[in-house]
């Protein structure tokens, strides 16, 4: 078993645990590379099927290429696709810095979606190597009645025994990609031939390493226009993956506040 096989086997195990334990389960499909890998792994786990809804909280500010991708693959992959609009910025905590406030629209939309579908668990494609607060996450991570994350008192998690018992009104975030790195994701995309939004590939000396809303996501300088070139580029870089995501950098704790309040 090579490294990618081991990563895949672990993610498949996690997805199957979630599917077995939660009757009302949904997967967040942000259209980014990680969530496409996650959908691919679901099809591996369930033998070509995705037996829960793929959910998308639309800020209305995604790149046109992302919406085109969504239209195509929601059909091609046979997804039960559920899309909801995010509430307007005026409804969001005004004390947050501007980019974080903008991103928090998604948290609010997700809370409403969880209530609407009465979800017990939400599968999200975050990774430990992305960002420091995500590094502290559990694979099965409980959220309070208001979707908040109590990072000071997380449940124990070992021997692949996950938290599957929880009080009514609370829910579990399931993180099947937590143990992957950005490079792992690209190596797997290369091996499996997983389709992606074309914005990841360099055009005119720039590409996106991480995709979010148009107004708070910035490209990096790059000539990598194929998966192989991106892998070569990542092997040499020391620039953080989310350096182009404004909401992470507004203050020391901006992203931690977002996540404590229920952001992915």
């Amino acid at each position: 078993m090579n490294h990618l096989d081991a990563l895949e086997a672990q993610s498949v195990y996690i997805l199957r645990e979630a599917f077995n334990k939660f009757d009302r389960l949904g997967m967040l499909w942000s259209l980014g590379k990680d969530s496409n890998v996650m959908l691919w792994l679901a099809k591996k786990a369930f033998f070509g099927h995705v037996p829960f809804p793929a959910m998308f909280c639309d800020t209305g500010k995604k790149f046109p290429e992302m919406y085109a991708f969504q239209d195509r693959y929601a059909v091609e992959w046979g997804l039960n696709f559920i899309k909801r609009d995010c509430p307007p910025i005026e409804e969001i905590d005004p004390t947050l810095p501007p980019a974080a406030r903008s991103a928090a629209r998604k948290t609010e939309a997700l809370k409403r979606l969880i209530a609407e579908l009465d979800l017990q668990a939400v599968i999200a494609g975050i990774r430990r190597d992305e960002e420091a607060t995500r590094a502290k996450e559990r694979v099965f991570s409980p959220r309070g009645e208001n979707a908040e994350w109590d990072f000071r008192d997380q449940p124990p998690e070992f021997w692949d025994q996950f938290k599957t018992d929880f009080a009514p009104g609370t829910h579990i975030r399931v993180h099947p990609l937590l143990h992957w790195t950005e490079l792992d994701i690209w190596l797997y995309i290369q091996r499996e031939g997983i389709p992606l939004v074309p914005l990841y590939f360099a055009r005119d000396g720039k590409r996106y390493r991480s995709l979010g809303d148009m107004d708070i996501t910035h490209p990096v300088a790059s000539d990598a226009d194929t998966v192989a070139k991106i892998i070569a580029e990542l092997r040499g870089t020391r620039v953080a993956e989310r350096s182009g995501r404004a909401m992470d950098h507004e203050s020391e704790d901006a992203f931690e506040r977002l996540r404590s309040a229920g952001y992915m």
């Binding site: 190597d129 502290k136 990072f151 000071r152 997380q154 143990h179 790195t181």
Partner: peptide, 8 residues
């Protein structure tokens, strides 16, 4: 340090 952190 209050929790397990994984770093690559």
């Amino acid at each position: 340090t209050i929790d397990t952190t994984q770093i690559f």
